[in-house]
Amino acid sequence: METEVEAPGVEPRDVSGGVEVAGAEKSFGPLKALAGVSLRAAPREVVAVAGPSGCGKSTLLELVCGLSQPDAGTVQAPPAALMPQRDGLLPWLSALDNAALAQRVAGVARAEARRAAHEHFAAFGLEGFERSRPAELSGGMRQRVAFLRTLLAGRPLLCLDEPFGALDALTRAQMQRWLAGALAREPRTVLLVTHDVEEAVLLADRIVLLSPRPARVVATLDVPLPRPRHRTDPAVVALRERAMEVLGA
């Protein structure tokens, strides 16, 4: 890896909490990942990006998080906190120190960062596991620690990359309910990347459906449904089926 020092905040990535991606293109060598993707997220809106595996969803999140620049098109976004696909927890840190990591990077003293993280442990169902290392936690708990870390970064935008992709169906359903509740308590602008259309319908205000690689937007569906939503609600089922149809499944 080559070293690169990026001055933070130089690029104009701020629309006061909202996201605006216009005609974004990105290639990796001969491989075209994004072929002109446009999407918007208003402040405090949850936008799900759904599409087949390997279609370039993670690439899109990297652009929004400012980790890479588009080859063409524009990306405007406020400072974002990324929750990577495989939780990205550091195996040598306790759950508490992992949750406090974002604040430690921001320069907050260890004791203060730990205290701030610990305030949320009960609400996140992590009480009693403060000193446990990630290997000692269940899959669902690891995701909660990772999400808490993302939340504590204090950024207006959260970029969640398939947050529950690695969980079993039962735990995933629990975690989806839990995330809906957590976002109701602490509203943020959220970009949720998922290959699970049902998850998108349950959690999002709007769903952007992507084609197989190179990704372009095939449809945008509004989800004007009241919360909390249940997977058996006729409206949820109908919307899920429509999304599946659009994706060609």
Binding site: V5, P8, A80, L82, L90, L101, A102, V105, A153
Partner: peptide, 29 residues
């Protein structure tokens, strides 16, 4: 060099400095 790429991405998204990445991620790993 073998530090977890996801954790690397995470630290970059948090605007971690080169030194912070070395100290918090690469050296322990």
């Amino acid at each position: 060099r073998d530090a977890d790429p996801d954790a690397r991405k995470l630290l970059r998204s948090l605007d971690a400095t080169r030194w912070q990445t070395l100290r918090m991620l690469e050296l322990p790993s």
